[in-house]
């Protein structure tokens, strides 16, 4: 089997924040009625995580699940586990009105770590990061592109964007994270 190739080849940058591309990540989009009990149990089985509350992401032993919209979830699993997970979801939800898609190669995942992480993001996102709790996910805009920002820890953010936008996102974030550009908005 061919090796997965991520959008930026695992690029890393250390400046105001530690910026890195997370590498190949298994990602599955599920759209449908999030109140379905069969969906909750299938998600639990695949990721080990409970159904997230509105605008939250929850983490389990084998992955994570993020609330993306009132009828959409994004599941994170190991890259190799994505295809079997899609098959398991389709089997568990057969007959229900849901759509399941493996979007592992359609998205890029970047991580930001450091006390300045939300300052860097706040330069390009129209978001008040004081309102984004740990474990929360916020879909918004990063300069000219769509992005989902997941606050995994107090100073750790995961940014998800379209793969075709990965270079733009990377160039922008690494430029904004250059030392000397501290804003100190969130202290």
């Amino acid at each position: 089997m061919s090796e997965p190739v991520s959008a930026l080849g695992g690029a890393q940058y250390a400046g105001m924040v530690e910026l890195a591309e997370a590498g190949p990540r298994g990602m599955i989009t599920v759209r449908g009625d999030l109140a379905l009990p069969a969906l909750a149990s299938a998600v639990k089985k695949i990721t080990g995580a409970a159904m997230p509350a509105r605008r939250q992401a929850s983490t389990g032993a084998k992955g994570a699940v993020a609330w993306m919209s009132p009828d959409e979830l994004l599941l994170f699993v190991d890259y190799a586990a994505a295809a079997p997970s899609v098959a398991a979801l389709e089997a568990a939800l057969a007959g229900e009105f849901v759509t399941i898609a493996d979007v592992s190669d359609a998205r890029a995942v970047l991580t930001l770590k450091g006390s300045q992480a939300c300052d860097v993001l706040a330069k390009i996102c129209p978001v008040d990061f004081a309102d984004l709790p740990v474990g929360g996910i916020r879909r918004s805009r990063a300069a000219q592109i769509a992005a989902a920002i997941w606050r995994e820890e107090q100073d750790e953010y995961t940014v998800i964007c379209f793969r075709s936008h990965a270079r733009y996102m990377w160039d922008m974030l690494s430029q904004l994270a250059r030392p000397g550009g501290e804003v100190g908005l969130y202290r």
């Binding site: 509105r54 605008r55 919209s69 009132p70 129209p126 918004s140």
Partner: peptide, 12 residues
Amino acid sequence: PCCGVSAEETEF
């Protein structure tokens, strides 16, 4: 009203 986010108009 669908996701509860308050955001400025460029997000809409």
